[in-house]
């Protein structure tokens, strides 16, 4: 689990302001967030994808694996958070529930990258090709910004 980014001078592009969370992101970054939600949503439907086992693999050695209720609960959560992110990606203000959905989708998007690229160690991350490294850096930066807006006590 890597350490976080250092704080930059000036107001953060995602920050708490009273009861709401202010989002000041360029259009291309908002599109990136939407695409991340779409990628997470698609991953549920493709058991042959490398990320499927990482995200949706067996939870234990009992009958939980393949339990339709477990599958349904997981799918319901994923569908819901992806829907919320898609609907709120262009907003300038987020509720805590919307920010929580962002945090979940960004987390699953990070896990998707890790599974697709086979990242198991810190060295694997260091060896990422530049394109994937930039993708992962942006996801993790957004993750941290959303996390800090949800909980200002988190260290930066």
């Amino acid at each position: 689990m890597p350490g976080g980014r250092r704080s930059a001078p000036g107001p953060l592009p995602i920050r708490r302001q009273g009861e709401r969370i202010v989002v000041e992101l360029p259009r291309r970054v908002r599109r990136f967030v939407e695409e991340s939600a779409e990628a997470v949503r698609r991953s549920v439907d493709d058991p042959s994808a490398p990320a499927f086992a990482r995200l949706y693999g067996r939870l234990d050695e009992s009958a939980v694996h393949g339990d339709p209720l477990v599958t349904l609960e997981r799918q319901t959560v994923i569908d819901e958070v992806c829907r919320i992110v898609t609907e709120s990606a262009r907003k300038d203000r987020l509720s805590d529930a919307e920010a929580d959905a962002w945090l979940r989708v960004l987390g699953m998007a990070v896990a998707l990258v890790a599974a697709t690229a086979g990242l198991a160690t810190d060295d694997d991350v260091e060896r990422l090709d530049p394109g994937r490294a930039r993708h992962l850096d942006l996801l993790r930066s957004l993750q941290l910004l959303v996390a800090q807006s949800l909980d200002p006590t988190l260290t930066r």
């Binding site: 689990m1 890597p2 350490g3 976080g4 980014r5 945090l103 987390g107 990070v110 896990a111 990258v113 890790a114 990242l119 198991a120 160690t121 810190d122 694997d124 991350v125 992962l136 993790r140 993750q143 941290l144 996390a147 800090q148 988190l154 260290t155 930066r156």
Partner: peptide
């Protein structure tokens, strides 16, 4: 996991 930030 090597990718999720500690704070998250």
């Amino acid at each position: 996991d090597p990718v999720t930030p500690m704070q998250v």
